[in-house]
Simulated scan of single mutants.
Amino acid sequence: MTQIHPTALVDPSAELDDSVSVGPYTIVGPHVKIGAGTSIGAHCVIEGRTTIGAHNRIFQFNSIGAVPQDKKYAGEPTELIIGNHNTIREFCTFNLGVPGAGGRTTVGDHNWIMAYTHIAHDCHVANHTTLANNTTLAGHVLLADWVTVGGLTGIHQFVSVGAHAMIGFASAVTQDVPPYMLVDGNPLAVRGLNTVGLRRRDFSAARIAAIKQMHRLLYRQGLTLDAARAGIDALATETPEAAEDVALMSRFLSAATRGIAR
């Protein structure tokens, strides 16, 4: 049966799987849905139209599904959707979306989200990310799979961070960060590749070599962005094993809206 502490306030309309546990003094609102095996710690507030998947561990003192910090929001029925197998540590704040931007904030699966992280309205966090303490995502931020963000880092609204990128400690991220890159600082600078992360994920030597060449084309040869993109596209033929990596980079550069981090 659902394990709800006697001091918790769970609205009768909330939908909780029988295996969900809810800690002392936690409040769960009427539009909340929580999947199998998820545990909610003490003193949390989970409200709004929030859907939480299976086998998440949400520690004490979190605010999940509160209205967005956007003056235009007027109580519309927007959403927060959290996937499966996420760890959410203390004092995090995840907000609902706003209508003009799709009305949905999403967090995927297998994310490791440390204390005091803020995920604002209409952010989309993919899978297997690591967000260290005091990571702050402004509205409309996109984090792709396997992104790592260092502590005390702020990411500007509408910024996209590509898959396998790593952002160092106390950085100010105001431009899009291409996949695979290692960046840090204020102002932000590209320091190289996230080579350690790629090796941990079993990227082959050929794939890493092709990614290094993409880095050289973008940052080391003085090329225009269009010329660098042409050189990157050619790598798919030169290194077929890295064709998917090249395609990922090409798609990211084509979609970048804030300019890329240099």
Rank of each mutant, 00 (worst) to 15 (best):
E15L: 11
C44F: 05
V22C: 05
S39Q: 14
G41L: 10
A54Y: 00
V10M: 05
G48S: 05
H43N: 15
G35Y: 10
G23M: 02
Y25C: 04
A54W: 00
C44P: 02
H31D: 13
G23Y: 06
I4Q: 10
V28S: 04
N56D: 11
V45L: 12
C44K: 12
R57M: 12
Y25I: 02
E47A: 10
D17Q: 06
R57E: 14
G35K: 14
T7A: 07
I34L: 13
E47M: 09
D11M: 04
V20A: 09
I27T: 15
A8L: 11
T26F: 00
A42H: 12
E47K: 09
D11E: 10
V10K: 11
T50W: 11
H5W: 08
D11H: 15
P30F: 03
L9W: 09
A36W: 02
T50K: 14
E15R: 15
D18Y: 05
G48A: 05
I46T: 07
G53F: 02
I4N: 10
V22P: 00
P12E: 08
T38S: 12
A42M: 06
P24R: 12
S13W: 00
P6A: 12
V10Q: 04
L9D: 01
G53Y: 02
D17M: 01
G53P: 02
L9G: 00
T7V: 07
H31C: 05
I34M: 13
Y25A: 04
V22G: 03
S21I: 02
F59L: 15
P6Q: 13
P6V: 13
H31M: 06
R57I: 15
T7R: 11
C44D: 05
S21L: 06
A14V: 11
P6I: 13
I58N: 11
P30T: 08
R57F: 09
K33D: 01
T7Y: 08
T7N: 07
V10H: 04
H43K: 03
H43Y: 15
V10W: 03
T26N: 03
H5I: 01
V32A: 05
E15A: 13
F59Q: 13
T26V: 05
V32E: 04
G48E: 07
I46E: 01
F59D: 08
T51D: 09
C44Y: 07
S19K: 03
G48K: 09
C44L: 04
A54H: 13
V32C: 06
S13E: 11
H5S: 13
I52N: 12
I34V: 14
I34C: 13
L9P: 00
R49K: 09
S13I: 00
K33W: 00
V32Y: 01
A8P: 13
I58P: 14
